[in-house]
């Protein structure tokens, strides 16, 4: 029913936890809704070089949602914000072999990455972006 990769990420989730929201370089994305059965919190920590040096997540949801967010934290690490923004839900879904009814989990993970990046940019001011 669940692919091996989903089971692996569910049983050994990568990067569970969080950073202080006000910590320097941290961007937080909180997406989903309890009433829909899934909520993801994904945080990124951006280093001085503009690359994401670390990421954390917490997820309320099914195994596929947990796996999607766990995978997302792995994938964003080491990427620039622009690179991380290009991660597509279809890539997550394909990598985890999600069945059609679980595609929304990957969509949520993509949204979580984007929301975290947006939050980081808002906190650090648009100057950051303009400078690039």
């Amino acid at each position: 029913m669940y692919s091996e990769k989903v089971v692996d990420h569910y049983e050994n989730p990568r990067n569970v936890g969080g950073f202080g929201k006000e910590e320097a370089g941290v961007g937080t994305g909180l997406v989903g809704a309890p009433a829909c059965g899934d909520v993801m919190k994904l945080q990124i920590k951006v280093g001085a070089d503009g690359r994401i040096e670390d990421a954390r997540f917490k997820t309320f949801g099914c195994g596929s949602a947990i796996a999607s967010s766990s995978l997302a934290t792995e994938w964003v690490k080491g990427k620039t914000l622009d690179e991380a923004e290009t991660i597509k839900n279809t890539e997550i879904a394909q990598f985890l072999s999600l069945p059609p009814v679980k595609i929304h989990c990957s969509v949520l993970a993509e949204d979580a990455i984007k929301a975290a990046i947006k939050d980081y940019r808002e906190k650090t001011g648009s100057a950051d972006k303009a400078a690039e």
Binding site: Y2, Y10, F60, G61, C62, I66
Partner: peptide
Amino acid sequence: AHVEGEGLMMG
């Protein structure tokens, strides 16, 4: 509370 049922079933 705060644990999604399907995710829990998998655990």
